[in-house]
Design a protein around this nucleic acid. Sequence first.
DNA 1: GTTTCATGTAACGTCAAATATTACGTAACT
DNA 2: AGTTACGTAATATTTGACGTTACATGAAAC
Lengths: 151, 151
Amino acid sequence: MKRDSRLSWVLHALLHMSQADRSITSDQLAGWMDTNPVVVRRTMGLLRDEGLLATVKGPGGGWSLACDPEKVTLRRLHEILGDGNLFAIGVKTETPSCLVEAAVNRRLTSAMAEAEALLLARLGEITLADLLADFAGEDGAAFATHRDGPS
Amino acid sequence: MKRDSRLSWVLHALLHMSQADRSITSDQLAGWMDTNPVVVRRTMGLLRDEGLLATVKGPGGGWSLACDPEKVTLRRLHEILGDGNLFAIGVKTETPSCLVEAAVNRRLTSAMAEAEALLLARLGEITLADLLADFAGEDGAAFATHRDGPS
DNA sequence: GTTTCATGTAACGTCAAATATTACGTAACT
DNA sequence: AGTTACGTAATATTTGACGTTACATGAAAC
């Protein structure tokens, strides 16, 4: 399975945006995130629809943060992105007629549910502000890694 | 992405096999698991290579359990199957040059590692025998769900 | 010993989900 | 008007899981 990496690069984008003093275009972000501008608009549009980002059309327009980094958890972002399956493994039949298979499914889904709950809880404990703090003090180096990065 | 369901149906197969008094062919298993005989051989071959199953060629041959259900955990099976990625989400870049992205990756992979550890721990607590016990008493009903099941 | 049953395995085909791309529409600034 | 930028539908590409075909090998039955 191809892993869904949207949460990963959206976070990356949000952090850079939170430090920029002006809005950033989809093209710029696509360059930094090594993806396509349309993908950026499509994905970040989900966050805009939730009021976390603001977009402005036309020259000088682009994307900017419209939320308090202290108040946005990774869990919230994960849920907005709507990643369906958190796991790459799963049961073969959702509602099996065989009782043996049903017993297997109960055990597997129960274990996976526990792990999922833990992961969501951890993601719920981490805010954008926490991530910003993670590299506080090395901002210069951080931005030097993207050509044409925010001044 | 398509979720890897091998652990799920291999368990299903092992449970049925553990109750059969004779070996079972790949064709039979493929019928019950709703898959292809070659897939059965490919997948269960991994377990045979680890000594958990025995195969016999020729008429009357097939697959049979060669291990103690008390001693085989779901974790062991998961590891033998070698499912690479447990999660359907992941970081975009494994070794990023951007420090911001690296900070994101650290947080994400750390949270995922915790969840993975929990899931593996849970799978390590469950044996084939536990699964067999789950439906003890309803054996007849269990087997009735597969036509031509073990007598 | 050859026919039949069954596994072993390489090679290739199919399918679904994530991502990428193309194309065109709309709004805003100059 | 022309340029910049987002909005979005439609389509293509990619990747990994799974399925299928084909053929080889070994064991039993006759």
